[in-house]
Amino acid sequence: MDTTQRIRRPYVIVIALAALAILMFSLVPLSIFSFLSQRLPVFATVFLGIFIEAVPYLLLGTLASGFVEVFLDRQWMMRVMPRGNVSSAMMGALLGLAFPVCECGVIPLTRRLFQKGLPISAGVAFLLAAPVFNPIVIFSTAAAFGWGAMLFWRLGLTLVIATFIGIIFSVEKDAINVIKPILPVIHIHKHSHGPIVTFKDKAAQAFVIGADEFFEMGRYLVIGAMLAAAMQTFIGQGTLLTIGKGPVFSVLVMLTLAFILSICSTVDAFVALGFVGTFSFGSILSFLTFGPMVDIKSLLMYRQVFQKRAVVYLALLPLLMSLLAGVVSNYFSP
């Protein structure tokens, strides 16, 4: 009776809450506030760094997807793509030469190509290989490492892993088990505008599709960049680098780094360059192969495009294969 009466009086509750708040604030050591005021600007800078770096590439990728949707003919695609699983996987892996995209841009583009009738094996191989096997990345890797062993092995290993995983995926014949259906952003009940004819209209249409996809994929870029920035701001990396010794451990450290740094494949060669001398050839190679295939933000985007089981394969197979390649390389050329 007594208690119910007390609860009925709202101001008592307000006072109680205020007292509780004061108590909590006095219990939380002041150092936490100064810690946050120190670290939050660091978080903001790292987050915006990843975001600003990646935005142009995501824009290019989503626009490419828009143009594919509007201009690429489904029949033509069916005719051109080879039938066999192995040949279509290899074809897919090489397709990056025609679409210079990084790992953010490649995901919406792949989904669009799937919709246009690209076989699963080719699409998966394209998804994994294109962020490395394209002119921009080839030149940026060459700019960082020269036209030598690192470039050769990066391209070769990426092709092998992508084609191999593409072939594995070709076991699944039903696309619905691999890819989530595209939900149109806008539900149009009646088609009031007639067929789009002029080039200008078509281009505008491509831009609208690109913009919609930029917003759909961009949210994973934002969230992924935030996660990566938070991990970098609040968890020390110095220790990670100092424990990175030994033929297996060094590869593991570089793979972890590739995952949490979440930097764009077009520029990661310059970052990898920073580890030459501290890390072996094999571990840097694994960094350069695995990073473009899987990192925090691309993993989030995969979840939007692929079914759960496919996402697991898409993350684990590249991880295991780059780990293997890195460790083998460490044993043979220490």
Partner: peptide, 20 residues
């Protein structure tokens, strides 16, 4: 807006060799 400073050194670590 603040460029990275000494408070970021603590998480990023400081390097005395320049292998980069």
């Amino acid at each position: 807006a603040r460029p990275l400073d000494s408070s970021a050194v603590e998480t990023k670590g400081v390097n005395v060799n320049a292998p980069l």
